[in-house]
Design a binder for these strands. Structure first.
Length: 549
RNA sequence: CGGGGAGUGGCGCAGUCUGGUAGCGCACCCGGCUGGGGGCCGGGCGGUCGCAGGUUCAAAUCCUGUCUCCCCGACCA
């Protein structure tokens, strides 16, 4: 490709409202452009990156026996009503000309299960791995950070169909291993974490996380331990107890900070009340240490029920002064070590010292940096979720009637798994992880081009002709090469090359004609490599190429 | 959904408070110079100031309404 003809609108300045590095650089480098909130076009160079990632994913899913197909983006609403997933706030809904309801797909469990339900009869038809790359539509409440969180994006989603839990485990493991190969091949720093199963239902889930500053997820890390903070569990740091007894007048002190200040105690000596009402209507008072926060996902999982905050009239005691009460089911967070704590006295303006010992214990708090796992302090860092794997079990096969007959002719629901990867997020994560002041430094597996040949001198000059000859020679041996043959100054060409971030840059100018070699620079680290002789360039480039990240 | 901010040539911005008919840098076009880090000189093109209504002799500027986008938080199959 010649830059003089490429649609590559680079910008000197980032968009005024961009915050995330990948947002700024991908726009500046001419890879993507915004169309609306959470709606993005991929321009030619950006699409090459996307397609290279897609191809890596395709190869690895094919390698575990996946069969690529394609399902539509628009679905009859009825199908989603059957699965019980109709009416999510994120779901785009529309009507056709006849007034029939449709939805735009957030994922494809319903459709793929429909096909399997209609076609699979026998255990002999299992297992199956089906996948596709298709647009997903989600009406996100807040799209952000360029291509990191969008309302429309392409996802590779695969689905496994097995006869039982063991089969599902095998399909799950295959994906786990394929994903590891995919992210390694893409050149990302990544790790696998335990995660919440969320609204997907199912019994087990892991996320593949690429650490970076713009990440929306928080991950708790310790040697041998990695978990999404949504589900992470750790030993709390101990609190020192100062001697306090009896009841304490705390008029107007309704927050932890205010109470701690009023009585001269550390927040960790207090109990924080979190009154909720479960789905079934049961009232529960949850207590965590004053310096901790309730983790609503962990709480929901621990209570095995959705819940909502209790209203004041349901609590029946003055909010802000709640303490343990024998009148209502009471749950203490596991991090509340037995001992005395300051809690509300269930009377306006009064706190009192209570002794917690035993009681119903559940782990429902959000871990904080410094907590320990196996004696090691955890760190919490942001990361982008680039892939996830879910065990769905029979959550979709039952409502949608996907079943098979076993050897004895008995009918069973099919066991399913669901596995997603977002190529756009891999691209953005790579930019977040590998960039410098000048621009992007792509991992070579997903760069838009392998080599950028910068031709200095006027178009038509000896330098330009030598650059073109080099460009053509490298192309003939299968390298993806882009030639900067524009009539621009050297500085502009170097600046654009560093923005775009191809792993290897070869410069052909007057000096090259004198020395008979093109200068070679590795983009990552902007490191000078041994020059590439113009005569015999292919071998030299191959050799330089092999050492690049 | 709560809070904050912004819409003025392709990009980044000034002008709005104090109304007088739109400006700067970059980019772009033409000519020339330069040709190894966004170079220089000269000459140009391009915007009914998000949209609608109102006030006024006169609106980018004041008033009302509305749309869109961004950031923080909540949310995030």
């Amino acid at each position: 490709m010649r830059l003089s003809r490429l649609f590559l609108p680079t910008e000197r300045q980032p968009p005024a409202d961009a915050e995330a590095i990948s947002h700024k650089l991908m726009v500046r480098a001419g890879l993507v452009r915004q169309v609306g909130a959470g709606l993005w076009s991929w321009l030619p160079a950006g699409w090459r990156v996307h397609q290279r990632i897609v191809q890596i994913v395709r190869e690895e899913i094919d390698a575990i026996g996946g069969q690529e197909m394609l399902m539509p983006v628009m679905h009859p609403a009825e199908l989603w009503k059957r699965s019980g997933r109709y009416g999510f706030p994120e779901q785009f809904r529309l009507e056709d000309r006849k007034g029939a309801e449709h939805v735009l797909a957030m994922t494809h469990e319903e459709v793929v299960t429909l096909h399997v339900a209609n076609a699979v009869r026998s255990y002999r038809d299992l297992p199956k791995i089906l996948y596709h790359f298709q647009v997903k539509e989600r009406d996100e409440p807040r799209p952000r950070a360029g291509v990191l969180r969008t309302r429309e994006f392409i996802m590779k989603d695969s689905y496994t169909f097995d006869r039982d839990a063991e089969g599902l485990q095998a399909g799950y493991d295959l994906h786990d291993q394929a994903y590891a190969r995919i992210f390694d091949r893409c050149g990302l720093e990544w790790y696998r974490v335990e995660s919440d199963v969320g609204m997907m239902g199912g019994s087990m889930a892991h996320e593949f996380m690429a650490p970076c500053a713009a990440g929306e997820n928080e991950v708790a890390l310790a040697p041998g331990y990695a978990a999404n903070v949504e589900v992470a569990s750790a030993e709390a740091q101990p609190v020192e107890h100062t001697a306090l007894t009896g009841s304490l007048d705390t008029p107007g002190a309704t927050t932890i900070e205010a109470v701690a200040a009023a009585i001269g105690a550390a927040p960790g000596q207090l109990l924080k009340a979190f009154p909720v009402v479960l789905d079934g209507g049961e009232r529960v008072d949850v207590f965590v240490r004053g310096d901790h926060r309730v983790n609503e996902i962990k709480l929901r999982n621990a209570l095995k029920s959705d819940f909502r905050p209790a209203r004041e009239d349901e609590i029946g005691r003055p909010a802000g002064f709640l303490g343990p009460s024998s009148d209502v089911r009471t749950v203490f967070d596991a991090a509340i070590a037995p001992g005395p704590y300051v809690a509300g006295a269930n009377r306006e303006g009064v706190h009192e010292v209570v002794t917690v010992d035993g009681g119903e214990r559940l782990d429902v708090r959000t871990v904080v940096a410094g907590d320990t796992v196996n004696g090691s302090a955890i760190a919490i860092e942001p990361a982008i979720e680039v892939g996830n794997i879910f065990k769905l079990g029979t959550r979709y096969s039952e409502p949608l009637g996907a079943s098979y007959l076993d050897e004895s002719g008995r009918e069973h629901p099919i066991w399913m798994g669901s596995y997603g990867i977002g190529p756009a997020r891999i691209a953005a994560a790579a930019v977040e992880q590998f960039h410098d002041e000048q621009g992007i430094a792509w991992p070579k597996a997903i760069a838009p081009w392998d080599v950028e040949v910068v031709a200095l001198g006027k178009p038509g000059s000896d330098e330009a002709r030598a650059a073109q000859a080099l460009y053509e020679e490298l192309r003939t041996v299968g390298l993806d090469v882009v030639l900067d043959d524009r009539a621009a100054g050297a500085g502009e060409k170097f600046a654009d090359a560093e923005l775009l971030g191809c792993p290897l840059r070869l410069t052909v100018g007057r000096r090259s004609l004198e020395s008979g070699a093109a200068e070679a620079v590795a983009r990552r680290g902007r490191a000078d490599l041994d020059p590439v002789p113009l005569d015999g360039a292919v071998e030299a480039v191959r050799e330089r190429w092999g050492a690049l990240p």
